Simulated scan of single mutants.
Amino acid sequence: MGVQNALVDLPAMRTNPKFIFFTDFDGTITLQDSNDYMTDNIGYGGELRRKGNADTLNGVKQFRDSFREMMDSITTPYDECIKFLVDNIKLDPYFKEFYEWSLANNIPVVVLSGGMEPIIKAILQNLIGPDADKMEIIGNFVGPRPGKSINEQGGWEIVFKHPESGFGHDKSVTLRQYSSLPADVRPTMFYAGDGVSDLSAARETDLLFAKKGHDLITYCARENVPFTVFEDWSSILQKCKEITAGKTTVQEAAREGFEAYKSGAAGVKAA
């Protein structure tokens, strides 16, 4: 993909950035996973949801199928689901500071989510305000069930961005569009995530931030995918400032992450 085509086809390249931050949404930018929160409270409950996540992590079930089962268990009208989440989902206390820094330093933030775009946009508008519109959101969609409206009982279903993929939304597709750019324009790519919806993205970035104590670390350690650990966005902000200032490299940060995992500081037991 040439420079001119990149400017047209990849919105985050329009300002010719040297760095781009890609991130998961649920449980990464936010303190709670909105889909888990719906499933646990107005769907089939936490026990079945946790089993589905474990089945995905262990290769028993594809994420797309597990996630569809979760969403199918929720029959509350869609507009009520959005209100329920806007009223309850909280932002990581340091994300807004990170986002303000990224805007000031020409580091676009692109949300790659296994969730649904309308929910993400509504939550971000509530938590961040007008600047949320400057963030590109790429996720799944929602559609009406046959003969119904999405805003009636049992009326909506998830519509996957990549229904042919076992991920439903294969985040690697977007990441590879950027990683395949010519070396003289290709930005350094960061990614932050926490769980099973991030498995397709784990290998496709220059530096992966994996949330302490969560499933993504287990996967990365098992599959030898380099990563660095974060607890909240204050540690992401600090590390990004160091890298963009040339004080450390993505390779050094990833090495530190694996050492943290081996020492038990990543919040999961080292194998």
Rank of each mutant, 00 (worst) to 15 (best):
V110C: 03
L112T: 11
L112M: 12
G114Y: 01
G114T: 01
G115A: 09
G115N: 13
M116L: 10
E117V: 15
E117I: 14
I119R: 04
I119M: 05
I119A: 02
I119H: 08
I120S: 12
I120P: 12
L124G: 02
L124Y: 01
L124T: 13
L124S: 10
N126Q: 13
N126T: 13
L127S: 01
I128N: 00
I128H: 05
I128A: 00
I128D: 04
G129I: 13
P130E: 06
A132L: 08
D133S: 15
M135F: 11
I137Q: 12
I138E: 09
I138T: 09
G139Q: 06
G139R: 05
G139I: 02
N140V: 11
F141I: 10
F141P: 04
V142Q: 02
G143A: 11
G143Q: 13
P144I: 12
P146D: 14
P146Q: 11
P146A: 14
G147H: 07
G147W: 07
S149C: 07
I150A: 01
N151M: 03
N151G: 02
N151A: 04
E152Y: 10
Q153D: 11
Q153T: 08
Q153N: 11
G154P: 03
G154R: 04
G155L: 11
G155E: 09
W156L: 07
W156I: 07
W156Q: 06
E157N: 12
I158C: 08
I158F: 11
I158R: 12
I158W: 12
V159A: 15
V159S: 13
F160H: 15
K161V: 13
H162A: 13
S165K: 05
S165C: 06
G166S: 14
G166N: 15
G166H: 14
G168L: 09
H169Q: 10
D170N: 10
D170I: 03
V173Q: 11
T174E: 14
T174F: 13
L175C: 05
Q177G: 15
Q177P: 06
S179K: 15
S179Q: 15
S179D: 14
L181A: 00
P182W: 04
A183W: 12
D184L: 01
V185E: 11
V185G: 11
T188S: 14
T188Q: 14
F190A: 07
F190R: 10
Y191D: 03
Y191V: 05
Y191G: 06
A192E: 03
G193Y: 03
D194F: 05
D194R: 06
V196L: 00
V196D: 01
S197T: 15
D198I: 07
L199A: 04
L199P: 05
R203F: 08
R203L: 03
T205W: 04
L207S: 00
